[in-house]
Design a protein around this nucleic acid. Structure first.
Lengths: 140, 140
DNA sequence: ATGCAATTGCAAATCATTTGCATTTAAAAG
DNA sequence: CTTTTAAATGCAAATGATTTGCAATTGCAT
């Protein structure tokens, strides 16, 4: 047990939900488990089909949607590109997107969270969720 | 000069840029000038074609894109729907979207702005722009 | 090993938006 | 007011990301 990246319980969760683990799904779940970045559907497809050419883009989309519905992954529609995905297990955070590389950096700010709730409240609303994305360029 | 809503200089700006003001464009610009909300392309099309049936959705899209390029309007891709547009002349603000009605409420928070710049800087980035959207429900 | 509902890949559909093209037209020039 | 011509039009078809219909395949409970 040295090479394994943190093995998410994707397979377990899906089995619990009565979902069948097919060969192609197993590969997709493995790819997602190992993903340390924020891949889009095409990236997941490329990584998965490199391991098992029987994986289709359609099944990647279906599996991503399934995991999203089960709350296991989060979908982010950043500006000007396809949706990108990440594990749902980490604690809440927002994103800074590197405009030159597309790299996504996570950050948290309880101050901003608090201000958001306060603003919503002042406007007469209960905050259900929010989207905070910073777009920037590496300094220097 | 009593009935006019604030008449944006859309026409003027476009003329300056060497753009021809056609009958259909004039109507679209008028509709946009009068818009107090955040309409999407289809809404603009409906309002415009009600006044002049020769306006097509294609021309609405072309005109919106033109105004966006000239910096006269801003495009916002809120969650789960087509892009919505607003005048670019007002000062910077962010948006709270009413999940039940789709209504968009504008707000500003210099505190949040400052925190965002600070966070980007701490991560080694210059903030180019950001997207902050609150999604909420009217408090009952 | 069997059976059948779940899953697959493919092609076609969707949705918002853009683009190619032949036709029309704004507006500068005379 | 006509002429001229590049810009703008509407329509239909293309785009790109994603979803869906369907016939063929396959997990997995029995």
């Amino acid at each position: 047990m040295t090479e394994a990246t943190q093995n998410r319980n994707y397979e377990h969760v899906l089995r619990e939900a009565g979902v069948r683990i097919t060969r192609q799904r197993a590969v997709i779940l493995e790819v997602l488990s190992e993903a340390a970045d924020h891949p889009d559907a095409m990236a997941v497809y490329q990584r998965a089909s490199a391991r098992d050419s029987s994986v289709s883009l359609t099944t990647v989309y279906r599996t991503l949607k399934l995991l999203e519905e089960k709350g296991e992954i989060h979908r982010h529609a950043f500006e000007g590109g396809p949706s990108r995905f990440e594990h749902a297990d980490s604690q809440h955070h927002d994103h800074l997107i590197d405009l030159d590389t597309g790299k996504v950096i996570e950050f948290e700010s309880e101050k901003i969270e608090a201000l958001q709730r306060e603003i919503a409240r002042e406007l007469g609303y209960d905050l259900v969720h929010h989207r905070l994305e910073l777009y920037g360029r590496k300094r220097g």
